[in-house]
């Protein structure tokens, strides 16, 4: 689960890497270069294509889905194999699996954005403060992060959901909390590197406040690794949320969440394997999309970037 966060993949270190790395100002040059490199990368484009599909499904599920994902149930038409009428078959309640998967895309995007939003905001804040101020603040924050990391992350997520109650929102919060340490560490090390640079000294010399230096000068220069991590984390968050739902600790019926669909299909999977095949495939594709894009972004922003 989240501890299986994908590892840097120097996609092609033989391509000559333009000198990038922290730049003093947000010049548009390096970013534009990065964007064009991104679009030239086959990996990234594949990722973007999958995500575009996902986004379309999420935005237009109401129009695209042939049936209502919740209300068009029919117990006399349950567990039917794929057919012209139901492209991916029907589930145990006799609902159309294709329609449910389309609507599930919306839920999955929500999960990714909300939970990674939580890790991103809190993790960045903690990491930035820790790296910038150093000393005791750094020591305390990093020990807290160590404690969080010593917890097996799935157990921590399960415990948090148990406290808050099994619910999709609570699962998102739990996954968000579990993801904090990663962001905190990445941001901290970036901040440590950037804060020694001359332009920071310059800002300090003209009397800028700590907050201003941190948020206006340092953090913008740490954007690249944060962006990569965010993309990869969204994939992981979707995977984790599906796992929690599969254990009954995330989305609740009749929500068309993919992990929950797997859980509900599990009892019938011997006789009706399509009930579990398609939702699982949807999870796999979505997570793959984010990983592809994340890889592409990493290569585009800095091929030499290492965590």
């Amino acid at each position: 689960m989240s501890m299986f966060a994908p590892i840097p993949h120097a996609h092609d270190s033989r391509t000559p890497a333009p000198a990038s790395g922290p730049t003093p100002t947000r010049a548009s040059g390096p970013w534009r270069d990065a964007a064009s490199r991104l679009l030239r990368s086959k990996t990234a484009c594949a990722g973007l294509a999958i995500l575009a599909l996902l986004l379309t499904a999420a935005l237009f599920a109401d129009v695209l889905a042939p049936y209502d994902p919740v209300h068009d149930a029919d117990l006399y038409n349950r567990l039917q194999p794929p057919s012209a009428e139901h492209w991916l078959g029907t589930d145990a309640q006799g609902r159309d699996i294709f329609s449910r998967i389309l609507h599930g895309a919306r839920i999955s995007l929500e999960i990714g954005l909300v939970s990674v939003g939580i890790s991103l905001i809190l993790g960045t804040l903690l990491g930035a403060v820790s790296g910038y101020f150093g000393g005791t603040v750094d020591l305390v924050i990093m020990r807290l992060i160590d404690i969080l990391l010593a917890f097996p992350s799935i157990l921590l997520a399960i415990a948090i959901v148990a406290i808050l109650g099994p619910d999709l929102i609570n699962a998102m919060i739990a996954i968000g909390i579990v993801g904090i340490p990663q962001f905190a560490r990445i941001v901290r090390s970036s901040v440590l590197a950037v804060k020694e640079m001359e332009f920071v000294d310059a800002a300090r010399a003209i009397g800028a406040s700590d907050a201003r230096i941190l948020f206006r000068h340092i953090l913008p220069n740490c954007l690249a690794p944060i962006l990569v991590q965010t993309t990869l984390s969204i994939g992981t968050a979707i995977l984790d949320a599906a796992g929690l739902s599969f254990l009954g600790l995330g989305a609740q019926p009749p929500q068309p969440e993919w992990g929950l669909m797997l859980k509900e299909g599990q009892s019938a999977f011997q006789t009706a394997v399509w009930v579990v095949t398609f939702p699982g495939l949807a999870i796999l594709l979505t997570v793959l999309g984010f990983n592809l894009l994340g890889d592409g972004l990493r290569d585009a922003l800095d091929p030499r970037l290492k965590r």
Partner: peptide, 8 residues
């Protein structure tokens, strides 16, 4: 499952 069918 029963709850979902009853809700329907």
């Amino acid at each position: 499952q029963i709850a979902q069918a009853i809700a329907a």
